[in-house]
Design a protein around this nucleic acid. Structure first.
Lengths: 357, 357
DNA sequence: CACAGCCTTGACAACGTTGTCGAAGGCGCG
DNA sequence: CGCGCCTTCGACAACGTTGTCAAGGCTGTG
């Protein structure tokens, strides 16, 4: 039997997506069995004679039959899709997170429905509404504006795990913002720094605020008085005048703690553009080019792979036990020392980072 | 009527995802209408009395009813989901691509099913098989190993658009690899360079090969003899010994064309680590830190946003007209001059890029 | 006042699949 | 040789939704 040129009676020149997909009944008819038997073969159930199975498989191949996952999941009462809702995939942190989650999902035969909020609460709600209709197996999300009650309502439909930002009463996987920052500032102190700046980013999330708290706590611990003028929180797209001013003033900080990767980039840009001397620098969040510079940029590593694994694992746990008590997982961080964080206050480093002349 | 505290009779302590979702019949019963009327209200169809509509909406709100998109799409015979299958989301190019596509999809009420191949043909086929079962509205993919016949078969099920890499007979959106490379090399020649290196990456895709062809063509055009020793194609994770050797030799190239972003990073790393003098450098593919260096890295910009828009538009065209002849869209590129590409052969640039001391 | 026509609503089937149950046939054993 | 069991298979209903069609009430007009 030729399996090319399925003659369907019509004389289409090019069979471009006009012919409906083969259904299970088509396969059944061709193989001379019932749909149920086809179903059995396709799903690898036992109790089908080898001969029958072969005939069915031949028919499946000939017609190019692929079971309709919608009908399947509708009947079975469970989807094979998990959703992931994040700020933006252009953020390398989330890119890595999605990457890990998709990988793990694939291992378990799950599909990943991707959605992003663009840091926008309205869009977040839109996306959540859409995702709800999709009857997911579970949802991973980095919450923006969505409140605990809303998430609790969602939680009744399918397991939900928050990532990067926690919500009371909902499972979450976050990083130890406070502790990691304390650790970084302690390192500065240990190297003799006293004027330590905090460069943040104005976000609607508490992560940066928590890091700021850690910064203050570590200063307290070292007996250093908190100085508001050493703190710069820049807007997402705001100009960096205050940052420049801070780094150029006579008593410029000898050490800079940068609370996010974008902030770090801004710092490096500023130092480079203004030909300033290099302060000690630690960045919260690793980034691709951190080791291209000399010295490399010391980073607090919030390993997205680790976070992704923990998040996915927790989601699966919840799939198995929907009534489990909410758990808040804190993924440990560690300092990747590359040089920039280990500079002493009096290190003379006239050449600006990234400069050529 | 209170819409808090839905008294359902049972005395669950925590209603964690145990209660089944409200179905359209539940809403109908509560509102005292037929399911069809609920369907009409939910879908915004005309011909429902305001009073009836209000009662239905109240019932919908009380039960937290969200229509099941699987049943809906099954009945309607069309999904609201498009698939996107790419190499890896950790590649910033694809991250940006997915970002744009998702944005455009959202505007049209479409969901995005995300999948990646990890540059692996086996995994690609696995993913394609899964996606097929999902009865997509359309699929965007960066083909790895999949052949034209396979894609043609897929094409019968739903529209398919290839991105970044073309396949004969299938719609595609690519970048002008050849032309852009010619343009870059011409710029080098115009600045007086004669020893121009080509740093590629060993990929299974023809993109790099096409760029190499452009490189050779531009050399020919300028009357420069092709020199194989100036071409380095490094493996994905291979050591960069040959690159180092090339850049360190006495007659090192005065200009370097780097065919991919990773290759560019390798070049910069090498220059930085080996404290070499800075050659003129043009990178195929922009990257985040390109303007942090001094001078900034001149790049051939293959704008993922543009590519994403073109791809999505083409996909929608195909959704409307499934029988359309395959089209091959070539998205124009342009050179972003930042300094590194405009260096002359005799420019003395002793300080290595990214160096501090 | 009768009848046509519109507006609103509902009963029913169907989308493609799988779970349930029962039927038919073969085989072993008494 | 007959009975019962196991194996293999099929008919049917159902998952939750929407499209089709028709019923019923109401209005307008001759």
């Amino acid at each position: 039997m030729d399996h090319e040129q399925t003659s369907s009676g019509s004389s289409d020149v090019v069979p471009t997506s006009s012919a409906r997909h083969a259904r299970i009944t088509d396969v059944a008819k061709l193989a001379g069995v019932s749909m149920k038997t086809v179903s059995r073969v396709v799903n690898g159930e036992a109790g089908v004679l080898p001969g029958t199975r072969d005939r069915v498989l031949a028919a499946v191949a000939e017609l190019g039959f692929v079971p309709d996952s919608r009908a399947r999941s509708l009947k079975r009462g469970g989807t094979d899709t998990i959703g992931i809702l994040i700020d933006a995939i252009s953020d390398p942190f989330f890119a890595a997170l999605v990457s890990v989650v998709e990988e793990l999902a694939l291992e378990r035969g799950l599909s990943v429905l991707f959605a992003s909020t663009g840091y926008d609460g309205r869009r977040e709600r839109e996306q959540l509404a859409r995702l709800t209709g999709d009857r997911l197996r579970g949802l991973i999300l980095a919450p923006v504006d969505v409140t605990t009650p809303e998430l609790t309502a969602l939680r009744r439909r399918f397991p939900v795990v928050c990532v990067d930002r926690a919500r009371e009463g909902i499972d979450s996987v976050v990083v130890d913002d406070f502790g990691a920052t304390v650790q970084a500032v302690r390192a500065f102190v240990a190297h003799g720094h006293r004027r330590i700046a905090f460069i943040g980013e104005h976000t609607p999330y508490p992560t940066v605020a928590t890091r700021l708290e850690g910064y203050r706590a570590a200063l307290d611990e070292a007996g250093i008085t908190f100085d508001q003028s050493l703190v710069v929180e820049q807007g997402r797209h705001r100009e960096e005048r205050s940052l420049t001013e801070l780094l150029r003033r006579p008593d410029a900080p000898t050490a800079v703690f940068s609370a996010t990767s974008p902030a770090t980039i801004a710092v490096i840009n500023t130092i480079s553009a203004e030909h300033l001397r290099m302060p000690a620098l630690i960045s919260f969040g690793d980034f691709e080019f951190a080791d291209v510079f000399t010295p490399g940029i010391t980073c607090v590593d919030q390993d997205p792979r680790l976070i992704g694994q923990a998040t996915f694992r927790r989601l699966l746990d919840l799939v198995d036990d929907a009534a489990a008590e909410p758990e808040h997982v804190v993924v440990p961080t560690h300092l990747i020392t590359r040089g920039s964080g280990e500079l002493a206050p009096d290190d003379d480093l006239p050449a600006p980072i990234g400069a050529l002349r």
